[in-house]
Design a protein around this nucleic acid. Sequence first.
DNA 1: AGAAATTGGTTTCATTTGAAACTATATTCC
DNA 2: GGAATATAGTTTCAAATGAAACCAATTTCT
Lengths: 155, 155
Amino acid sequence: MPSSAAAKREARLDLDRFLPYRLSILSNRVSGAIAKAYSDRFGLSIPQWRIMAVLGSTGGLSAREVALRTAMDKVQVSRAIDSLMRARFVARAADAEDGRILRLSLTPKGRAIYDEVVPLALHLEDVFLSALSPEERRQFDALLGKLARQAHLLG
Amino acid sequence: MPSSAAAKREARLDLDRFLPYRLSILSNRVSGAIAKAYSDRFGLSIPQWRIMAVLGSTGGLSAREVALRTAMDKVQVSRAIDSLMRARFVARAADAEDGRILRLSLTPKGRAIYDEVVPLALHLEDVFLSALSPEERRQFDALLGKLARQAHLLG
DNA sequence: AGAAATTGGTTTCATTTGAAACTATATTCC
DNA sequence: GGAATATAGTTTCAAATGAAACCAATTTCT
């Protein structure tokens, strides 16, 4: 069933050349650097910030919809929302039609933080990507898209 | 201080286009799929497997060296080694010169597992990368290298 | 030589995490 | 209409995690 690279016996695997591993290291480094910036300046964790990010561009989502968009699980979302509500960054209101659903949105205070964090986020992305030329960025973007679709199938 | 993309006011940020986020999702999906395969078939966690992987290609490393190569922290390494030793996949012996150091290696049993897992790992990598043409794989490899170096600076 | 500082590795403790159980509302099926 | 099932969201409990404290062996400095 393996095809090309999978050798016969005495197979070797060099972690430094194993793409899933390299991807994981890179992602952790980048997320770590960003998490530190958010946390230092705004006291936000990555899950908290992700929720702010989706609510900042689309208000009125339910927790479940937030979970779908952020690829977080519902427990994590529930807990992050809890802390964001205690910090008064996020508010919620019952849905008019479905009593199980709570619609979430940024408070003015939350919006103010959002407006500060977004430029920081974009700046960090920019610094990270400054290692690539514009053409390379487009390539990377496209390749990431293809791989994401592929990974979706494996999942 | 931000430069290009960081807009003025009413800044928006679409998570789906934010590269650090996309990278994180992709990496988690891929690692998750691989972790499941290792765990289902061999009962190995990702940290455990990473240690097996480095010891498989270079025996006689110390825990510290393993930690360096795998980008894991020393607590995590210590614990994973503990479990691998209980499973008799890994053995260790005191270093002749430095009494603090314990040199690690795969046992025959560990080597046998390693020889089974490597083809599986390479196969999964292959399936994952089958979304890309050979040329695209080379590109992705190169871009990942550039970004890793860049991320190293930020870290 | 011996005190002080370093380094390899483990343990402790508090926090984070996720799976499964749970509550409450909606929907489906008879 | 009402029992059975499904869905939104929260809570519980056990395991994974990491920072800091810790132990032991080594090196450095005087």
